[in-house]
């Protein structure tokens, strides 16, 4: 009984994904009829310059927003766990995770417009850092729950001043959390659509991959999308595998 139920749930979760992957090898390109195995759509995908430009933009956004959010989120988590925290700090660090994307998108658009800020990749990065910081902070904080806070005092007691203690003790212990949080942040940023859409400004120079996917889905589906989806699914799964290893595997230093 239990096994059957879990099987059904897993089918529900995986059949849609597997369907897309299968269709990406469908020669006919139609979702309805199987026209034989083909990797033709992957060739088409690689010839599409727009996709490469969008991929490049997405990686720029994900990379820089992750670097900034990794730093801010880690510091925020340390401040909250090792120093005094209060409900205002907790709320501020929590809101970016739950606020509807659309609300965040329009308020950032209003903000940037009011300041007459030129929109582009940099404004997407700034916006993504907001929610990424909150997520990195949340992941790093779970890492703090794992370890005995006394080790930091033990290090002071044994003669390690603040900076030494941070480099030798605190950082190595939370590092898996920082890596996992950063990978999460990278995936979120890589996949994020609405906020990027609103804060990218007019013109196609700062189109990101999710924006391109959206227009491909919304306005005329081309079979290339299946091939692209397969790539993105595999890419996301790889990142998740790596981050799982980082959290659970042996500590790095």
């Amino acid at each position: 009984m239990k096994k059957i139920y879990l099987c059904i749930v897993f089918c529900f979760l995986y059949i849609p994904i597997l369907t897309l992957i299968t269709l990406s090898f469908n020669k006919s390109g139609l979702p309805t009829s199987w026209g034989g195995f083909s990797i033709n759509w992957y060739y088409e995908l690689f010839e599409n310059q727009k996709i490469f430009k969008a991929l490049f933009n997405t990686i720029i956004v994900a990379f820089f927003s992750t670097i900034i959010a990794g730093l801010l989120g880690t510091l925020l988590a340390m401040g909250m766990e090792l120093r005094k925290s209060n409900k205002y700090i907790e709320a501020t660090a929590f809101i970016p995770m739950i606020i509807p994307d659309i609300v965040m998108a329009i308020s950032l658009l209003s903000f940037f417009t009011l300041l007459q800020f030129t929109l582009g990749l940099h404004s997407i990065i700034i916006s993504h850092v907001v929610f990424n910081t909150a997520f990195v902070c949340a992941v790093v904080r779970t890492r703090f729950k794992y370890f005995d806070h006394n080790v930091i005092e033990a290090s002071y007691d044994l003669g390690g001043k603040h900076i030494i203690t941070f480099i030798k003790i605190t950082l190595p212990i939370i590092l898996p959390g920082v890596i996992a949080g950063s990978l999460l942040s990278f995936t979120l940023s890589f996949d994020e659509f609405i906020i990027a859409f609103f804060t990218s400004g007019a013109g196609s120079s700062s189109t990101t991959l999710p924006m391109l996917i959206y227009s491909m889905i919304r306005f005329g589906v081309t079979p290339e999308i299946n091939a692209l989806s397969t790539f993105i699914i595999l890419f996301s799964f790889t990142i998740v595998f790596i981050s799982q290893r980082a959290v659970k595997g042996k500590l790095l230093i």
């Binding site: 730093l71 510091l75 401040g79 120093r83 700090i89 660090a93 809101i95 903000f111 700034i126 907001v130």
Partner: peptide, 17 residues
């Protein structure tokens, strides 16, 4: 007083609140 949380909170306040 808690300087560690300052950069993150400033960013969130400035670009969200």
């Amino acid at each position: 007083k808690n300087k560690l949380v300052l950069p993150g909170l400033t960013w969130i306040s400035l670009f969200l609140l």
